[in-house]
């Protein structure tokens, strides 16, 4: 019998190990699996390589994980956001390394990683500092930069509805990186506000097929980063 539902965020992230690469869905607060991130902070794994478009805001969620000193390297496209103060400090002190990747290249590296494609050529970044040291190939008269696929030991994402087979649908622009990250994670953990039995979701509307998801966790009323930051919340409080 297949039932991927796990009883709590804590249980779902229990085996994330020191030194793991962890992809975290979300673009800003949209799609940020904040309860799974907080469970990872409680769990204590450290020396993580984190993949996310941003570096979080305030001192909750992603920013709290970084502030707790658990992240040795960030792979992201835009680490500089209003209200984002935690990462800059650690970056300047050299405690957290940064691999800056153009946003579309980041998405495609993750998609490629999940699709079994080791590398690809893209025109993005050719002739810029982000292409320095990278292999370049001219195809049909245009120059392209070689970029490598990206995979992770664990992926944390947030859906709005999932079923116990691991099928997931999302809420509006909360979808962003989650579908490709789900493909690229060896172990993909999805939190969702509603979890249904198989058949509860119309097969025609499923966005992430269950084969890409290993664990689903029910988080009925997920928190939003902006609301937590506005209320002055920190994690742990």
């Amino acid at each position: 019998m297949i039932n991927k539902q796990i009883s709590s965020p804590a249980e779902a992230v229990a085996d994330i190990f020191d030194g793991a690469t962890v992809m975290v869905g979300g673009f800003g607060e949209a799609g940020s699996p904040i309860e799974l991130i907080h469970a990872l902070i409680d769990q204590g794994a450290t020396n993580l390589t984190l993949v996310n478009n941003n570096t979080g805001t305030g001192e909750v969620g992603l920013a709290a994980l970084i502030k707790a000193g658990r992240v040795s390297k960030m792979i992201c496209s835009f680490p500089r956001t209003a209200n984002s103060t935690v990462f800059p400090k650690l970056y300047h002190s050299g405690k957290t390394k940064l691999e800056l990747v153009p946003q579309g290249t980041l998405a495609e590296r993750i998609r490629a990683g999940g699709a079994g494609i080791p590398a690809f050529y893209t025109a993005t970044s050719f002739g810029t500092p982000l292409a320095e040291g990278k292999e370049v190939r001219t195809i049909d008269g245009r120059d392209y930069v070689l970029e490598y696929g990206l995979t992770a030991d664990f992926t944390l994402i947030k859906g709005i509805v999932a079923d116990t087979y691991g099928n997931v649908i999302y809420n509006k622009t909360a979808r962003n990186f989650a579908p490709v990250m789900a493909m690229a994670g060896k172990v993909t953990i999805a939190q969702a506000a509603t979890i249904l039995h198989p058949g509860g979701l119309d097969p025609e509307i499923i966005i992430t097929p269950g084969i890409f998801v290993n664990r689903v966790v029910h988080v009925e009323n997920p928190e939003y980063e902006s609301e937590l930051v506005l209320s002055g919340a920190t994690y742990p409080s």
């Binding site: 496209s77 835009f78 300047h92 800056l100 153009p102 946003q103 810029t128 982000l130």
Partner: peptide, 9 residues
């Protein structure tokens, strides 16, 4: 802090 977002793409 370098931040590029989607501009290069």
């Amino acid at each position: 802090i370098p931040a590029v977002g989607g501009a290069m793409d």
